[in-house]
């Protein structure tokens, strides 16, 4: 169905009844007025309204909707027309709903003991609108509320039924996995235990990263793992925008970190807006969990701000 087709179908519901012969679940009563006033933090009404009679209270006008609410069991008394309208929007992907605004007109005060009846009409269905929440249609209903058969107020209520905007919530568990083999497994074992291990050649003493099964300085295959302090500085960095990478929300920052031990490694830069990253900025190691994988990342510290 095209957008125009849907709009035409929706518009056909304007003027049709949404609720016919609705009845308030209880008469207007003092207990509900007191609870409402306490919950809203407003003073309760004067218990004796001159000219009304002893023991009769007037409900605050803003309570108008209270007397027609259908309770936790959900909406009751809606017409088939309204249900069809909702089903049509559901099929068009507008499965989410949010109340957007409400207007009320007060024609006669409601008093304890008043029996409430009401009827609602689908006043308008908007063309397709795109909002921050998503794209959908506003439905405005107009409800006439009667007390003992006398028109007491008009309640106009607007909801947006919409298809939620796709918000990409990147789950770190989706990130690409580290590539691990026998040459670098020790590094990732260290990370699992929250230790950042670099190699040190036991022949010439040179410290190295990335892990390799031999020394680039003297060629010796002998080495030991030493734990890095986790202190470092940003040596270079990239702010990634494209293409989308699973587990990341662009833009995100990747740093080339020079550790205090003199070796460099690639890692995520966290705790700083990409625009504020500077080469030379101090960073400190922390660990984050990505699914079942621990990852070493570096938190940047802004100086002199």
């Amino acid at each position: 169905m095209t957008v125009a087709d849907l709009s035409a179908q929706l518009t056909a519901y304007e003027g049709r009844s949404a609720v016919l012969g609705g009845r308030g679940r209880d008469p207007v009563d003092a207990a509900m007025i007191r609870h409402w006033c306490e919950a809203m933090g407003v003073p309760g009404p004067d218990p004796a309204v001159p000219g009304v009679g002893p023991g009769v209270a007037e409900a605050p006008p803003a309570m108008l909707q209270v007397w027609i609410m259908s309770g936790l069991s959900g909406a009751v008394g809606r017409t088939a027309a309204y249900e069809e309208l909702v089903a049509l929007l559901d099929r068009a992907g507008c499965t989410a709903v949010v109340a957007t605004d409400c207007e009320q007109e007060y024609l006669r005060p409601l008093r304890t003991g008043d029996e409430i009846t009401f009827d609602a009409v689908i006043e308008s269905v908007s063309p397709r609108k795109t909002t921050a929440l998503g794209t959908g249609h506003f439905i405005t209903t107009r409800t006439e509320i009667r007390a003992n058969g006398e028109l007491a107020g008009i309640h106009r209520f607007r909801v947006l039924r919409y298809a939620p905007a796709r918000t990409r919530t990147a789950s770190p568990a989706e990130r690409p996995r580290p590539v691990i083999n026998r040459d670098n497994a020790g590094f990732w074992e260290g990370v699992a235990g929250h230790r950042l291990l670099i190699q040190r050649c036991t022949a010439c003493g040179r410290q190295r990263f990335p892990w390799l099964p031999g020394c680039g300085e003297c060629g010796s295959p002998l080495w030991e793992a030493v734990e890095a302090s986790g202190e470092g500085v940003v040596f270079s960095y990239v702010v990634m925008h494209h293409p989308p990478v699973p587990g990341f929300e662009a833009p995100y920052a990747v740093g080339l970190i020079e550790l205090a031990e003199g070796v460099r490694m690639i890692s995520s830069l966290v705790g700083v807006a990409p625009a504020r990253i500077r080469i030379g900025m101090p960073v400190a190691l922390e660990f984050v969990r990505a699914g079942d994988q621990e990852l070493p990342v570096f938190r940047a510290y802004e100086e002199g701000l």
Binding site: P176, I180, N184, V254, S268, I279
Partner: peptide, 27 residues
């Protein structure tokens, strides 16, 4: 060995030729 060498950047989202070049370019 080749996979491992490129793999150091993968979990941090550094995995395209442009991203590797950009690290040099920033420097």
């Amino acid at each position: 060995a080749e996979g491992v060498a490129l793999g150091w950047g993968l979990p941090f989202g550094l995995l395209t030729p442009a991203s590797w070049a950009a690290m040099h370019a920033r420097r």
